[in-house]
Design a protein around this nucleic acid. Structure first.
Length: 429
RNA sequence: GUGGCCGUAGCUCAACGGUCAGAGCGCCGGAUUGUGGAUCCGGAGACACGGGUUCGACUCCCGUCGGCCACCCCA
């Protein structure tokens, strides 16, 4: 506080032990669910060639890159997302990897943007991807994994919902509505704002920015009038070009129903997502109260491996950041108590017993126990206070008489029970 | 990058244009040289930084930095 020059950079976090414990809990839970789903962990470089992002991800990401030119004259960027790295890695060894490839990673990602609640310049993000499977079963599997990630923290359908759309279906519907093919991306980005700007605002922008006629604008807005999948199916199920996309989504939803996850899923065509490379299903997980930013987002990107690595492999995945998730868990009281504990705390009565204390401490540690003791000599009362504060389950007191007899006084800190135990037997079952 | 609000100990808060800026929790020490959680006593610790107005600024003004919110955008 006295020296303002040495704060963490804006948007970057210090993790003090209590905060690190929260992060560790989140990462541990992510790994556990990934394991249940049979995914393997990988990682890549935190610094990548700038070009890996400039072409593939769209302007949204490129505007906010942490990038610079290195001493070798290379344009580089700290990774803002993991998917291009994954695409490169998977493509490079595509021939030798058993499909489907089910991988996950927990990279630290960076973005240069003004920080706000839930949005920093750095975060840890679970990335979970399936490469090499185009069947809608993979879509359902991925979405189920995203949902179960949150369920594993104790969140329920009362807390969050997955809003699901599909770029392929949306594309077919928009083409049918009269949107020119070369303006699809533009229209995606405009209708993405439906919730915020309303039908009027979006309609005006479609006319102005996408230069669409009144008729096409009306038909485009009509697409989003349907709020549930069955209604869309009823309206467009027989439309040429649209029907196969609807059939595909129906399969995905059917499988989610079989998994018992229907309550967590809501069809919502207005979910578009900014990234340019999505080609099929796209989804975002939101807190039900709508107080926070998206907790998780992902989708299918069947052309990215071809673009990045020259290998035509379908793929899909999602990202889930630690920042919004931590806020949500804190709001719902789902962060666990993070209390430090020790198996043993060993107490010399006078400095003369330190050799015996050190020998015992080290032997217990060798056996795998967590053990601590006072690094400088303190009164016994003081040492007990510390043992208590550090969460020691048991203490061993060693005084002059004890050394003479080769014993220590083992005390159970919870019950207060004490017993004299030969030093060589302390810690033995 | 633009705009608005905000900035007092590690944390949560208080005070005032005029003695030495207070409290609780936490931290350190002691009561306690063979026994913890409790209690009591003591201690360290802050006006974000810089400048201006004023006899006097934590208070008013400006700038910088930082935080929150909105825009932008979204992991």
């Amino acid at each position: 506080m006295s020296n303002a020059n040495f704060q963490a950079l804006p948007g970057f976090r210090d993790f003090y032990p209590d905060e690190f414990a929260v992060r560790a809990h989140i990462v541990r839970t992510w790994r556990e669910v990934a394991r249940r789903y049979g995914f393997q962990e990988y990682d890549g470089p935190p610094l990548e060639p700038l070009e890996l992002y400039t072409e593939k991800s769209g302007p949204e990401i490129v505007q906010q890159l942490y990038n610079f030119t290195d001493r070798g004259g290379r344009d580089v960027a700290m990774r803002p997302e993991m998917t291009p790295t994954l695409a490169r890695m998977a493509a490079a060894r595509a021939g030798g990897l058993r499909k489907p490839i089910k991988w996950f990673s927990i990279p630290q990602l960076f973005r240069y943007e003004r920080q706000q609640r839930g949005r920093l310049r750095e975060h840890f993000q679970l990335n979970l991807d399936i490469v090499g499977e185009e069947d809608p079963a993979a879509d359902a599997e991925l979405l189920a994994a995203a949902i179960d990630m949150l369920r594993a923290f104790g969140l329920t359908e009362q807390d969050f919902v997955a809003r699901v759309s599909d770029r392929g279906l949306l594309r077919a519907l928009l083409l049918h509505a009269g949107v020119p093919e070369d303006r699809l991306i533009l229209v995606y980005n405009i209708v993405d704002k439906l919730e915020r700007e309303g039908r009027e605002g979006v309609g005006a922008r479609l006319r102005k920015e996408a230069e669409m006629g009144d008729d096409a604008v009306e038909r485009t807005l009509d697409v989003f009038r349907h709020t549930d999948f069955d209604a869309v199916r009823a309206a467009y199920g027989d439309t040429e070009g649209v029907a196969p996309e609807i059939e595909r989504m129906a399969q995905t939803f059917g499988q989610l129903r079989a998994m018992g996850l229907t309550d967590y899923v809501r069809f919502d065509l207005s979910i578009v997502r900014g990234l340019a490379y999505y080609t099929g299903i796209v989804f975002e997980l939101f807190d039900v109260r709508g107080e926070l930013r998206a907790i998780c987002g992902g989708g299918r990107y069947d052309n990215l491996l071809a673009q990045v690595g020259g290998v035509q492999l379908p793929a899909l995945g999602f990202g889930m950041g630690d920042v919004v998730l931590t806020e949500l868990l804190r709001d719902r009281g789902l962060l666990p108590e993070t209390r430090h504990t020790l198996d043993w705390y060993v107490i010399p009565v006078t400095p003369e017993q330190r050799p015996q204390v050190l020998a015992l401490v080290h032997r217990l540690r060798d056996g795998g126990a967590s053990v601590d003791y006072a690094l400088k000599h303190q009164g016994v009362g003081k040492q007990f206070k510390n043992a208590s504060a550090l969460g020691a389950r048991r203490t061993v007191i060693i005084g002059p008489e004890d050394v003479a007899e080769g014993v220590g006084v083992v005390k159970d800190m919870e019950s207060g029970q004490e017993s004299r135990v030969p030093l060589a037997e302390i810690g033995r079952p």
